[in-house]
């Protein structure tokens, strides 16, 4: 079976800074991978390259077997148009640290916006599915609320529902609980745990090592734009082989 994500020697620079310095990673279908690492190590940048919010400067990424960002003809690569990139992005959904719900739309409108506008689904169908998703994240009673009227934890669960409404094959999470008050973190993690059990392929950048230990199939430690080491959570979190990983885990664990 083809892996869900294959990243080969991915490079991304911002001016003189090498944000990604040759990252290679494979994620299997249904796998949950947690990415950890110090601030500035390139975790967000890597996620953003997977769904083409950033264009990579070197290497290549395949999502579900499809080379992203380029069309290959023989030995030549042609950059894809805006429209084609938009189509490729449908394979992955993204959940942001700061939620980024559409501020001018209600909860329900946020969720059906993609299905109706992008996928051209009939509205009643989209609404029915949105309601099912709202049930799933436990917020059916908030359908008419605006994002500003919700707590951070509620907003993040709506953001997850919005991503799910597009029926993506992968969900990318960029520190989904970092902007939340501690007592709201649990609700969001519960929804994510539920998704993982349901077989969703997930790449989760997180500082929640407890979540990583419990839910992840694999933990990846990044530092200075590189993957330093990776392995099953029990091994990597309890018994890391690199000094830098040990230092990081010691610093993050209370």
């Amino acid at each position: 079976m083809t892996p869900m994500i294959v990243a080969l020697d991915v490079r991304k620079t911002f001016g003189p800074l090498k944000a990604l310095d040759g990252v290679s990673l494979e994620v299997a279908r249904g796998e949950v991978v947690c990415v950890i690492g110090p601030s500035g190590s390139g975790k967000s940048t890597f996620l953003r390259c997977i769904n083409q919010l950033e264009r990579i400067d070197g290497g290549a990424i395949w999502v579900n077997g499809e080379l992203i960002g380029y069309r290959r003809e023989g030995d030549r690569l042609f950059p894809l148009s805006d429209r084609e990139v938009a189509r490729q992005r449908l394979a992955s959904g993204m959940v942001f640290q700061r939620f980024n719900l559409f501020a001018h739309l209600t909860v329900l409108q946020n969720i059906i916006e993609g299905p109706v506008t992008v996928l051209r689904r009939p509205r009643p169908e989209a609404v029915a599915e949105a309601m099912a998703l709202l049930e799933r994240v436990g917020l059916a009673d908030k359908r008419e609320s605006y994002p500003a009227e919700l707590s951070g934890g509620q907003q993040q669960r709506i953001a997850i529902a919005r991503a799910l409404a597009m029926k993506p094959e992968i969900l990318l999470f960029d520190e989904p609980t970092s902007a939340l008050d501690p007592e709201l973190v649990g609700d969001v993690l519960a929804v994510m745990r539920d998704l993982a059990r349901g077989g969703m392929t997930m790449v989760v950048v997180t500082h929640e090592l407890g979540f990583a230990r419990e839910v992840a199939n694999r933990v990846v430690f990044m530092d200075r734009g590189r993957v330093v080491e990776q392995g099953p959570p029990a091994t990597l979190l309890s018994n890391p082989s690199h000094a830098r990983t040990r230092e990081f885990i010691a610093a993050v664990l209370p």
């Binding site: 938009a86 189509r87 992005r89 719900l101 559409f102 993609g114």
Partner: peptide
């Protein structure tokens, strides 16, 4: 907020 544009892109909207 540029985050609004990014969120729109991730649900497959064109520019």
């Amino acid at each position: 907020d540029p985050g609004q544009t990014e969120a729109a892109k991730t649900i497959g909207m064109t520019r």
